[in-house]
Amino acid sequence: MLLTALKPGEELFRTPPTLLPERWEWSNFAEVWNVAPIGDHLRVTLIVATCSTLLVLLVAAPAAYYTARNAYRGRTAFLLLVLVTQMFAPTALVIGLYRQFVALDLVNTYAALILVNAAFNLAFSTWILTAAFAAVPRDLEDAGMTDGLGRIGVLVRITIPTALPGVVTAVIFTFITTWNEFVVALTLTNSPDRQPLTVGITAFIGQYEVQWQYLFAASLVAVLPVVVLFVFIERYLVTGLTAGSFR
């Protein structure tokens, strides 16, 4: 992608093709912002990914905490049901989702993208957080309650910080999955100011021509933030995926 993004347009279809550009066209990375509204698409992606992640954490953390700390009837069935929901691909549900959001008058809105992405990532986050919270010793929570904390205070001030690797795993998984989502965004949005970057870069794919240099330059813009984020949180992610067990 990098080498193609640095080629001028006339070199892309040269025969025989060359791996390295004969002329390095660094201006492609500047021009791509003018050829398409990449800035608007990037803003939409950041808003949707951030809000979806916060919504998932807000809902999944209490559900996972209750499931980890209470051996209620149907607990195993609930956890299996949570896992089964991960088997349904968004593509299989996209027609029903579109009809539902048309009825709610939410097509081409931030709310539609945020709700759908949060719903699709809620199950996995609940599963991961349940395992992470179950690994936190009860003695720590009992000590906090002895000092006057309620259940919410214990969750926020003791359990979540102690289970930080699991929380980070849920957050990063949700954020990256939402960042990369394409099918639902393509279906539920129809204007550039509401389309995320994954949909926006398809503007370079025309009926008769593909502007490969701009397509790959925009793709690198989309990939780079996720790669940088992963570099900084990789140790938390690995720890969170391997820690914890169900009781």
Rank of each mutant, 00 (worst) to 15 (best):
T109D: 02
S191C: 04
T202R: 12
T198P: 01
V102W: 06
T198M: 12
T198R: 00
Y208M: 08
Y236S: 09
V32D: 00
R235P: 11
A112I: 12
V183D: 02
L6C: 01
R73V: 13
W26N: 00
V228Y: 02
R23F: 04
S27K: 13
P17K: 05
A30C: 02
F120C: 09
Y208I: 07
N70F: 12
E10G: 01
I152F: 15
V107C: 03
S219P: 02
L186T: 10
Y98Q: 10
L113I: 07
L12W: 03
V226T: 12
L106P: 01
V183M: 14
T4E: 06
G153Q: 09
S125R: 06
L20Y: 00
G150Q: 07
Y66Q: 14
Y72M: 09
V231N: 07
L2N: 02
F88Q: 05
W26Y: 10
V238L: 14
V44S: 08
D139Y: 01
T126Q: 11
L58F: 13
V183I: 15
E31H: 12
E25G: 00
T15P: 00
P37H: 04
L149F: 09
F216E: 08
T130M: 03
W212L: 09
I128C: 08
F230G: 11
L115E: 01
A185Q: 06
S27R: 14
L113S: 10
A163T: 05
C51K: 04
V48C: 09
R235Y: 08
Y98L: 12
R138W: 11
T109M: 02
F232K: 09
G200P: 03
T18N: 08
A112M: 07
I201M: 15
E181P: 00
L129D: 03
I38A: 06
V94K: 04
W179L: 03
L55V: 10
P8M: 05
T50C: 03
P17C: 01
G206D: 05
E234R: 15
A61Y: 04
A123H: 05
